[in-house]
Design a protein around this nucleic acid. Sequence first.
RNA 1: GCGAGGGUAGCCAAGCCAGGUCAAAGGCGACAGACUCAAGAUCUGUUCCUGCAGAGGUUCGCCGGUUCAAAUCCGGCCCUUCGCACCA
Length: 960
Amino acid sequence: MLNRPTEIETKWQERWYSQRINEANRDERRKFMIIFAYPGVTGYLHVGHMRGFSYVDDISRYMRMRGYNVMFPVGTHATGNGPISLAKKVAAGDEGIISYLTRNGCPEEKLKDLTNPIGVVDFFNKVYVEQYWRRFGFMADWRRFTCTIYKEYGKFIQWQFRKLNEAGLLIQKPYYAPSCIKCGPVAVDASETDISCGGNAETTEYTLMKFKCGDLVLLAATLRPETVFGQTNFWVNPDVEYVKVRHENEIWVMSRPCLDKFHYQKEGLEEVGTIDGKELIGRMCTTPMTGRTIPCLPATFCDPEVGTGLVVSVPSDAPDDWVALMMLQTDEELCKQYGLDFEMVRSIMPIPIIDTKGWGPMPAVEIVERMGITRSGDPKLVEAKKIVYKEGFHSGKMNGNCGKYSDLPVDKAKDMMKEDMLRSTEADLFFDLSERVVCRCGEPVVIRKVDDQWFINYADEELTARSHDQAKRMHIIPTDYMTNVHGVLDWFRERACVRQGNWLGTRFPFDDKWIIEAISDSTLYPIFYTVTPYVNDGSVKAENLTTEFFDHVFLGKGDVNEAARASGLDPSLLAKIKADVDYWYPLDMNLGGKEHMTVHFPAFLMNHVAILPEDKLPKGIFVNWYVISKSGKISKSKGGAQPIPGAAEKYGVDALRLYYAHIASPFADVEWDEDIIENYVLKIDRVMRNVEELAAMQPASQMSGIDQWLLSRLNTRLAKVIGGMAQYDLKTLANEAYFEIPNDLKWYIRRGGNNGTAMRKALDIWVRMMAPITPHVAEEMWEHIGGEGFVTNAKFPEPDEANSSMLAEIAEDYLRALMDDTNEILKVTRITPSRVLIYTTSQWKAKGMAMAIDMAKKGELKVPTLTKAVMQDPDLKQHGKEASDYARKIAEDLMKRSKEELVKLEADFDELAFLTSAQNFLSKEMGSNVRVFSAENPEKEDPQNKARVAQPRRPAIYVE
RNA sequence: GCGAGGGUAGCCAAGCCAGGUCAAAGGCGACAGACUCAAGAUCUGUUCCUGCAGAGGUUCGCCGGUUCAAAUCCGGCCCUUCGCACCA
């Protein structure tokens, strides 16, 4: 056998792929189609990504060994601006990106290809397929590869959108989206793919309320429109210069940063001048809705960067306002300075507006007092605001001061009052980010209004209901997600599905200015893999992929000849493709990382439900967790993780695959730790040497007890593995095949097993069990033990009743327990034994046990019942108190036993004969002479009268 | 804020849904022994506490409950991780 992993990998990959056993073609077998959610082309991937990918290959290999015709296609997702921005940087000679590329193995001469986005995509497509997936020996059908920017893929996506439109699921309405002022829309997310800072920012919706102030309109931005009835005054920052902005017939006042941002959200804003905050102070303005007159007062906490830089004061419910008001009301000097009438200021009283359980009428006043806050800018105010807001929002009710909104819960009143003010044009909307966000290009990110944004209406009730139904029928792993996915489906709303700007992707079929967005073009795609081989071999071209083509092959619409005419394809080819689609689809399993739980998986499901007939809806979802580094998630954009080819070379592909499968349940994050990987490298090596040594064993015709034991054990393990794999439990497979079975084999050898015939059977089973997870070394071992063909194509072993031997398993368990007991005695007594004497149970105890088991099986076992029965039996009765003590003891013991254990205990197992046959083994193990007697043997040696404590399955032991 | 997960021996990690075979698989580490000139590999034993006879005691985040019986079921609490929409 070869022993260098890389040699083994190369050898078998060449054979697999040259014989094309990885290619999936329709035949009579049951089919199984599995994919992983294709990765985005954003640069080099890292060892963490291989976790989920390798699960798919493990499962696909297992399923093919179980007799399924398995299709495992791969592809990539290149939609978006990732490739564009990468190409730009390479073109600009950015040193960071170039060092990142070369460090990951990009040859110098390739760099020039990476200066354009398509070059980037082509390059990485090759890297993913060759350096990752083929390198890992995947049984993927490479002929089916596709990428989201291929023009044929685009045809498919356009068809998908036509179908969504026909289903009435495309809608158009205004949208407020984060957008770089230069690059267009960006994703604001913590991994900061598009942006260089501000990943945790959220979009906040402010209600802009208008306050008439002479010929001006002051705009106050608020998150709490429901507090209108509690407004007592207006806050202006005296140190800020505000701008006057003409909008239609009004002159609005706001801070300059606000105007800068507002431009992206509102048409027709024209700056017509500026006004100092100081000038506004002391003026009176009119509140919206209530039409009251309130004064403008000075406040330094008004930040021009937040909202409009102008704030309306609700001291009853806003701690900031109450504190500022208190300060002003006790500072006559300051009031004078601004020319304010001190008495007027002092006469301002908070107006209670919300009743909140556990609070008085004015929570802000209350909490400020409780927390001992006395001045603006106190950091405790942040917390105070949070508490009051939260309590009020969730459990508050508008009180009698609130006109027609009285008695409404706060969360309802909030929406109603906002809507009412918007309708009466007393308010407007303004969106802002909760923190500063900067694009990768260095320009700020703002919220931009898009008037005619297209959405996919995932909120559609019928679609949602049907998706729920399908989700219930699906095999969703882990089971937690099976329950959770329903919540997600309900929460799923309209989703913006197209965008403008410099992006790779498919043109929106109804309006060329839009490009279909990155998530919307990656939901229905698994079905496209049924067509890709024909695209890739040239028999179907982009122009053939007409609506009629897809309607016919995917939906079974229309006559084949009509569809052939419309698509320009031969009817026989069309019929063949349709038959393929009907054979392969639905998709049996879609595996993806946990990040897909709230967006990709529901969208994947809903698009299928929206477009495809019932018999083509997906059947399974598998969610896997991450490999993380010590510092947190290994991030694509931040790098720092081991490149995949380097890891493959260093550890060997099979060791890595075993690591992924065995290190933890797929539903837990694991930490990448090189020392742990090394252990798996050793494990693979050990297993191979094991097989080599065991295969050399000479055949024997006679089956001994230990031979039977070995085969029976394998049987038991197989049953467990196959049971687990019904849930794709790769960890159990890995644990049994690579850890438990080697331990069994060790025991077999230790017990003197040396039957090559039995071993041959065992190895045949064992090697096949290893084939799904570590296929390369499994092939190597399979070849070595004389297996036929590829183990990849072999059947997965199944438990064979003929190999099962309960007695053999009972015997070895019994022996182990005896050895453990003896060891414990030796440990406690610190005796180095010169002689060990063992006594098996006496007949009357065996009889008592049988009676107890009988009762236990009927569920009648109780201490008094057994004691009574025992004392009525003449054989037992003669042992008097010893018998009744024994009865109590075994009754207590057996009541705790499971059914399986009772069956084992009941089995007719001859302890004396077995131990006698194991006498030599025990002597060798103990390093001393071991002798076995029946407790009833009158000839026995029994210096300390130990024999009488012997029980069934619990021999007495004497050491000296 | 909304939603979901997790806390198991020195460490990693099964077990929990279907309570009893659980002082709790497996791995790693550590210690001791065998083999070896030696190291490594391999094999054997030990690795919560106590114990000179195979036993007993206390454990599965904390508190309480259900039960003959709880790591497992129920309630509350503490800590922690994750997802939340133009990243896929």
